[in-house]
Design a protein around this nucleic acid. Sequence first.
DNA 1: AGAGAAGTTTACGTTAACGTAAAAGAGACG
DNA 2: CGTCTCTTTTACGTTAACGTAAACTTCTCT
Lengths: 132, 132
Amino acid sequence: MDPETMSIREMCDAFDVTPRTLRFYESKELLFPIREGQKRLFTRRDRARLKLILRGKRFGFSLEEIRQLLELYYVGDQQETQLKRTLEVARERLDDLERRRAELDDAIDEMKSQMGMVDDMLASLSGGQKSA
Amino acid sequence: MDPETMSIREMCDAFDVTPRTLRFYESKELLFPIREGQKRLFTRRDRARLKLILRGKRFGFSLEEIRQLLELYYVGDQQETQLKRTLEVARERLDDLERRRAELDDAIDEMKSQMGMVDDMLASLSGGQKSA
DNA sequence: AGAGAAGTTTACGTTAACGTAAAAGAGACG
DNA sequence: CGTCTCTTTTACGTTAACGTAAACTTCTCT
């Protein structure tokens, strides 16, 4: 009823995951739904987190790595040294991501050239005329 | 002795993997070392494949997905329809990769803005002067 | 009250991708 | 010949990330 929160089923439909998955993520401290009696109520914060979790998974991060990343997003009021450490970790992660992107670019290029070769093979099979 | 082939240990040292991993990849038909008696000899082809395998893993592909991708790199002399199908699969994979890259770019941007916020918090803690 | 739908806890099962230990063969060397 | 070192096969163990089934509560509706 509260437009701010969602039931477990609403979450599942919205994000295409199973209840088991949401409970599992809670047990691993990736989500923190509040309770109304027995029932879980997922907040806006949980939805934002889940979105990041699913994205992280698509890049091959483990749930534990994702959990650590999520901490960066909800820093809170910590001490300065803690914040500096957090910032360091964040920069490392960012470098991680940018290295991945560079590799991904390479992979895409290689794949495109591979496909060019396949195109050529097809052309030589159907057409017969070679480009050289 | 043959500069063209490498022993299992040489492979492990060169790629920083364990013998178990190489044997496992062979059992899953990702690598095809030749045999000299009992011993495995890894060829140039195996080295090229292993490089692609390790890259694929870094992007969160499963070994089975990687195996299918590798087929694209070693097409051989198949029929035209087979080649066309192969090409289709390759294009799908390429789209996959480019979607991933787009998402990765978003993630990097978001992370950068997050880090900007952390920077601001640090500045306000040490300096005191706010930027607004 | 009875039935059904949605949610909960508890707990065993499953798949992927190796780790790790045991037992044995094959070549090199003093 | 005996001992190393490298490699092999066989096979049970492990972790991550859920799946799946069983046995309750708790509402809601007729």
